[in-house]
Design a protein around this nucleic acid. Structure first.
Lengths: 184, 184
DNA sequence: ATAAAGTTTCAATAATTTCTGAAAGTTTAA
DNA sequence: TTAAACTTTCAGAAATTATTGAAACTTTAT
C-alpha cells in the first residue's frame, strides 16, 4: 500500500506521540494510518506499509480493539480481515478520555477513598490526609464534570465551547437567575 | 525519616501511576512524599526514605523543578537544600495540565497546521486531510477551552463544576436571552 | 588556600517495554 | 479429511528507559 509523504509524516508523528497518549509507537502508527485512510486495511497491508512484523500488527489490533477504536470488516469473497477506525473524531476523543480515566484516575480515586476511611492520629497524619482529601475531591470533581460533558449533544457541546470567555457570562446569568429566584 | 503505612501506600501508588501521568516511578514517589509532608525534606532524606540513590533524587528534583512542582528552601544555619511541593492541589492540577498540553498536544497541533497548509490533490489526500482537519479543530477547541477554564477564579470554577447537567439549562437560558436581544 | 559538606553528572548496568518471527491455532472450501 | 489461507501467541532479541554510584563539581567556613 502506497503512502504519501504528508501522510507518512502524520503517521510517524502519531507514532511518537502515541506513547505519550497511552499506547506504543506501532499502535499509534497503525491507528493514524487507519484514521486517515478511507478504505479498510488488511493486517498484512498494515505490516508492509508500516514496516513492522505481522505479529506486532496482530497485537496492536487487539489493543486498539480493547480501546474500541478499531473495527473488523469483511469483504465478500475475501477471507482476510479488514480493519478501520470507528466513528467521528469526537467519538475517538470521548473514547480516549474515558479509557484514560479508567486507567489513570479511577485506581487513584479508589485508593484515596480507602485511605480516607481511617481517622488520622498524629499531626503529620492529619496533614497527609488533608492533602489526600484535596486530591480526592479534585479528581472526583473532574471525573463528574467530564461525565456531564459527555452527556451533552455535540451541538450543546459546541455552543458551550464556542462561548470562550463567555463562560464567565454564563456564570453571571446563573447568578442573576439565582438571585431572581431568591427575591420572587 | 519515618513514614506511616498509609503514607507508604499512597507514595507507592503515586509511583506506579506516575508513569501514566508523565514522569517515572521514583519521580512520582518523590513528589507524593513531598506533597503529603508538611515540612520541607532534604535530598538525602528522600533517598533514604524511598530507598533510591542520591543521584536519582538529584535528577528527579531537577525534573520536578522543570515542571515547576517543587521548590528549594533553606534552613538558617544549614547548608543542605530542602525541597517542598509548591501551591495548592488546584495549582498542581493546573501546572500538570499545562505541562502536558505543551508536551502532548502542542507538537501535534503545530504539525497539523503545517500539513493543512498544502492543498490536497487526489481523493485519498482529500480524505486524509479532512481527518487531519477534524483532529486539528478538536485539539484547538480543547486547548482554547482549557485556557478559558484556567482563567476562572477557583470560586467561578467551583460554581461551574457544581452546575453539572445544569449547564444545559443555563445554555438554554442563554439561548433565550440571546434571541430576546435579537428581537428587541 | 583548603577541607568539609554538600550537589550534579554521567558511564555502566539493570529493568522494562516493544518487536520479531516461527510455531500453533482457526476457519473455510473442496 | 485435508490443505490452503489466514490469524494469534509467545519466547527470545532488540530497543528504550530508569537507576546506581563513583567522580567531578560547587559552595561555604576557617
Amino acid at each position: 500500500m502506497e503512502i504519501s509523504e504528508k501522510n507518512q509524516s502524520f503517521v510517524y508523528h502519531f507514532g511518537e506521540m502515541g506513547s505519550k497518549w497511552g499506547f506504543n509507537r506501532t499502535v499509534g502508527q497503525m491507528y493514524a494510518l487507519l484514521v486517515i485512510t478511507d478504505k479498510p486495511i488488511t493486517a498484512n497491508d498494515l505490516a508492509t506499509t508500516l514496516n513492522i512484523s505481522r505479529g506486532n500488527v496482530s497485537m496492536g489490533i487487539k489493543e486498539l480493539q480493547s480501546w474500541k477504536l478499531v473495527q473488523v470488516t469483511h469483504v465478500p469473497g475475501d477471507r482476510k480481515e479488514y480493519y478501520n477506525a470507528i466513528g467521528s473524531v469526537m467519538d475517538m476523543a470521548n473514547i480516549v478520555f474515558e479509557e484514560r480515566r479508567k486507567r489513570e484516575v479511577d485506581p487513584t480515586l479508589s485508593l484515596l477513598r480507602n485511605l480516607l476511611l481511617d481517622t488520622p492520629e498524629t499531626d503529620s497524619e492529619i496533614y497527609a490526609q488533608q492533602r489526600m482529601k484535596d486530591i480526592h475531591d479534585l479528581l472526583e470533581m473532574i471525573t463528574n464534570w467530564a461525565a456531564e460533558l459527555q452527556k451533552l449533544t455535540p451541538e450543546q457541546l459546541n455552543t458551550l465551547m464556542k462561548l470562550g470567555t463567555g463562560v464567565t457570562k454564563i456564570l453571571s446569568v446563573k447568578q442573576a437567575l439565582f438571585s431572581k429566584k431568591q427575591t420572587e
